[in-house]
Amino acid sequence: MKELLKKLSETYGPSGREDEIARVIREEIQDYVDEVFLDKMGNLFAVKKGTGTKVMVAAHMDEIGVIITYIDKNGFLRFSNIGGVSPFIMLGQRVVFANGTVGTIGMEKLDDIKKLTLDKLYLDIGAKDREEAAKLVKIGDIAVSQRQLVFAGDRAIGKAMDNRAGCAVLIQAMRELGDTNNEVYAVFTTQEELGLRGARTSSYRVNPDLGLAVDVTLVGDTPEAPPMSVELGKGAAIKVKDNSVICHPKVKEMLTKIAEEHQIPYQFEVLTAGGTDAGAIHLTREGIPSGVISIPCRYVHTPGEMVDMDDMESAVKLLKTFLTQPIEMDKIYPCAL
């Protein structure tokens, strides 16, 4: 899975422009499923047919980035954010566009670094003037961090672990998925970072009985971190709540039971900021009971996002076991009264 993760992490794919990452994922998964297709929103569906419960598992494949809004006469580029981008993190970054153009980010003279905002930053692609810059980059083009994935022991450091780590887990689980009656829709969704947009329309289309998302989550195990119990290396996290979803108690229970029975390391997660695709899935149509398997990740939305390979393995095992077992929907709803 290390190789897969590296490949996914280093592929270009900001929100709204996911064609390249979708192509890579398609290659990695198509031999293991019955059907693969793209929709108009760019979501990639990989379907394993079955007659049992219809489950949709979403992992978003988009990453954060910067979008060009202006090119000045000296060839410097101004930009805005795609998703949650901090100006402090962007300062000094090397970024790359879809066509391979690279650049470095500088800032205007500031008397106080605390006043740093995105509009005080600019991108320098080495162009001598507007004309030269315009040959390489147009207004509306999107750049992402340029960063190779490296391994520090069993921990991977790289860009876009949010959420290529989730994509890797979902691909791997689909590859290892044994016999199952369940109909599984693995959906690699778009535009999660802009507000769970790909998941909203894809789950409307799939209309599953049950929804799962695989995404990264924040941790509380770094120096002076806010109080949160999730730690790197302590296993897959089973989400209880974030800002977008309160996971269905029964789905959370089912995941917990599987982890206990198969001795898969797990931890519970209550995230007080942020959301994930399950937030959109569970509100689809008449409502879809949903849960989330999270991969603990440090330094989220920086080019140095860190995940633990053991946690990834635990997440694969938990997901694959969940999808393989019969899922009795009448045990989920109506809830016993």
């Binding site: 008449e286 409502g287 989920i332 709803y333 109506p334 809830c335 009264l337």
Partner: peptide, 26 residues
């Protein structure tokens, strides 16, 4: 997200005035 306990009491207190009671997926 965890309305079950109060839902049970509400069901008990109101069911006599309805023709049918059901619970949806959420």
């Amino acid at each position: 997200g965890y309305e079950q306990p109060v839902a049970q009491l509400i069901k008990a207190g109101m069911r006599d005035y309805a023709d049918e009671v059901r619970e949806d997926r959420l």
